[in-house]
Simulated assay, not measured.
Amino acid sequence: MTNVVEIVNFTLAKGYTKDDFLAANQPMDEFLREQKGMLYRSLCEKADGRFIDIVYWQDMAAAQQGQQAFRQSPQCQQMVQCIEKESVQLEHVNVLASFGCDGG
């Protein structure tokens, strides 16, 4: 079984601050904790103000199931509103090797 990394690059929507976004991130964390096959998550900010959300999943099926649940979850809507939809770049990649992240 191959772990999968979901990488989402985006910017914030006009009118939203980083503090707004981080507050909206709390329910997202709760949502992810409930998802089967979610191993690890990092939310990162680049020097240019873009954000990268990185989620390790057990496999592609778990990643796809998590993505579907995200779209339907009321918990995630506040975070979605903070994101400039046209800026979103999402990809799933297979992990070939990893070190230091045991998923726990």
Rank of each mutant, 00 (worst) to 15 (best):
M1Q: 07
T2G: 07
T2E: 09
T2W: 02
V4C: 05
V5W: 07
F10A: 05
F10Q: 01
L12D: 12
A13T: 05
G15T: 10
K18L: 11
K18D: 15
D19F: 06
D20N: 14
D20Q: 05
F21A: 09
F21K: 00
L22C: 08
L22S: 09
A23Q: 12
A24L: 09
N25V: 06
P27K: 00
M28H: 04
M28P: 01
D29V: 13
L32D: 01
E34Q: 11
K36E: 15
G37C: 04
G37T: 01
M38P: 00
M38V: 08
L39E: 03
S42T: 08
L43T: 14
L43C: 13
C44A: 10
C44N: 13
F51Q: 01
I52D: 03
I52E: 14
I52A: 12
D53L: 02
D53R: 00
I54D: 01
D59R: 03
M60Y: 11
A63T: 05
A63E: 04
Q65P: 05
G66S: 01
G66H: 01
Q68I: 03
R71F: 14
Q72V: 03
Q75L: 13
Q77A: 06
Q78A: 15
Q78C: 03
E84N: 13
E86C: 00
V88H: 06
V88R: 06
V88G: 07
L90T: 13
L90Q: 12
E91V: 08
E91L: 12
V93A: 06
A97D: 12
A97C: 11
F99H: 06
G100N: 05
G100E: 11
G103R: 00
G103L: 03
